[in-house]
Every structure is written in C-alpha cells, then in structure tokens.
Design a protein around this nucleic acid. Structure first.
Ligand code: ZN
Ligand code: ZN
Ligand code: ZN
Ligand code: ZN
Lengths: 132, 132
DNA sequence: TAACAAACTGTTATATTATAACAATTATAA
DNA sequence: TTATAATTGTTATAATATAACAGTTTGTTA
C-alpha cells in the first residue's frame, strides 16, 4: 500500500483545488483561486505543482499546459500516464488500462533506448460530442 | 503517393531551419535564426509552424515546447506520433513503428470515446547516455 | 479577364506560462 | 543539538504564444 503522503500547506491547498475541479486547471487559474488563502505568486503555485507531479498526485496535460488530479490508484510515480482529450468540449480523462501500460512499458525501441516512462495523449470526440 | 506540398516563403524558411537542426528547435530560437531573412515577429514563426504541423512536415514535442522535422514517410497528417526523448542529453527521435501505431489507433476507450489521433512521448536514457 | 475568396504577410501590442534569485522559516534526521 | 533538506515568501524577469488590424499575393470561377 502506498503511504499517505504528508503534504505541506501550499501543496494541500493546490491539490484540493485541482481535485475539486471538473477538468484540467491552468496554473494561473489556480493562482487566482487561492489568493484569498494568502498565496500570491506564481512560484508558490509552480512549486506545489512540481511536488504534486513528482509524487503522482496530479499530472500535467502537456498539450494544454494544464493539471489534473490523478484518478488511478496505482500511479504514485507517474511513469505511465495516458489521457483522452475531447477536441470539442475539452473534457479530459485519465486512461487507466493495464494492457496499454504493459504494452508501452515493454515497448522496445529500435535505437536501443530503454524507456523508463511515457506520456500518451489521445484526441477525439467524447461520447457526448460524438452524438451531437 | 503524397503530393509535394508547395510552401510559402516563410513556411519554407522555417522548415529549412528545422530540417537542418540536429534536435528540436524552440519557436524563439527559430525566430532569432531567421531575422537576417527579414522575419521579425513571433507571429510569422508561429503561423508557419502551425501550417507545417497541419501538413505533417513537422511535429511539436509537447513536453519541450519545441519542434522537429518529421522523419517518417507516412505521417502527412500527424495523427499518430510517437517520440523518444533522452532525459539526459535531450536527444529526440521520432518512433516509427507499425505495430505501435496500429495498437494505439485501434485502442478502445472504456468511456466510449473514439480516438482520431494520439501523441506519445517516451522518456529514458539513450544508448550513449546509458553507457556513461 | 474581372472579381471574388482564400491564404499568406507584416506589424504592433499584449496575454499567458514559467523560472531566477534571494532571504527567511520550518521540518527531519544524525 | 546542530546541520541538512524542504518549504515559504517575494520581486523581478524570461520564455512562450496569441490578438487584432491592414495590406498583398494566389487561386478560382463567372
Ligand atoms: Zn494517474
Ligand atoms: Zn466532448
Ligand atoms: Zn512524423
Ligand atoms: Zn542521451
């Protein structure tokens, strides 16, 4: 079992906001949301984000420069992340699929590179947007 | 056979620089490199980049905000891109593997989303950096 | 070929995302 | 306890990207 990580004040504030959010949050939108709690500078946000990413509590959606809470129970170290992104409504979901991560972590590069980690972003139309 | 795309002057200038580069280039480093050719503003670079991405001549490495020339003969439309990134020397290679892209393009989301496109970034140590 | 539309260009200004650098404080561990 | 690492606060600045406007070139078709 993964030990419950003790977070610092700022880290906890930032994590709470990201976990409550319905979708990916941008760093500066987090900042505006926590100014009442005494966090005033981007650095404070980015430092918390860095730590939260490092311990796998959140992930960065690289194509959107935005951050989401981890919804997979087994990715404390974020070495195998995959997301689905709707190109219309921009909803983002973490894709948690054992076969997929096994396939990718075992994938052998032709150039002799040993992969330690991957990040995968799928794009398409979500169920809702497909219908419309 | 894919028709040879006719590029505009700015698009060709930007593509040439990216193709000649040994690794991923950042937008502003491209800008600094073409100022002698009369391109003075970021917009001109970003517009060319957008077009080149759209037609599959280049790809964006999202985790680095940088751009590389496509080295795969069959990705005019950039719907299935994969890269290997060395975490030490930062060398980037396009991963071109039929099995891999087939597997991912066929991958079925549990939430009923139909994927049209994906981007995959692998991280690790390249052959050279592994030895050292 | 005239005339319209689409794509591209140039330019100025500004928005957004992220890091540097410095000083102080708090938690952890030897 | 002392020192070492992690965290905080703060100001300033760097790096990345887009908005908005006006003009030009290119391609299409009437
Ligand atoms: Zn996760
Ligand atoms: Zn949608
Ligand atoms: Zn390619
Ligand atoms: Zn390397």
């Amino acid at each position: 079992m993964a030990q419950t990580q003790i977070l610092s004040r700022n880290q906890q504030i930032v994590l709470d906001i990201i976990e409550k959010a319905k979708g990916p949050l941008k760093a500066y939108s987090i900042l505006f949301n926590v100014q009442k709690k005494g966090i005033n500078a981007p650095q404070q946000i980015y430092r918390a984000l860095d730590k939260l990413i490092k311990i796998g509590k959140i992930h960065k959606i690289e194509s959107k420069n935005a951050f989401v809470a981890c919804t997979s129970s087994n990715c404390e170290i974020s070495k195998a992340t995959a997301f689905s992104i709707c190109e219309k409504c921009e909803v983002v979901d973490e894709v948690s699929d054992a076969k997929l991560s096994k396939f990718l972590l075992k994938f052998n590069d032709k150039k002799g590179m040993k992969f330690k980690r991957f990040n995968l972003e799928f794009f398409g139309l979500c169920k809702r947007c497909k219908i419309k």
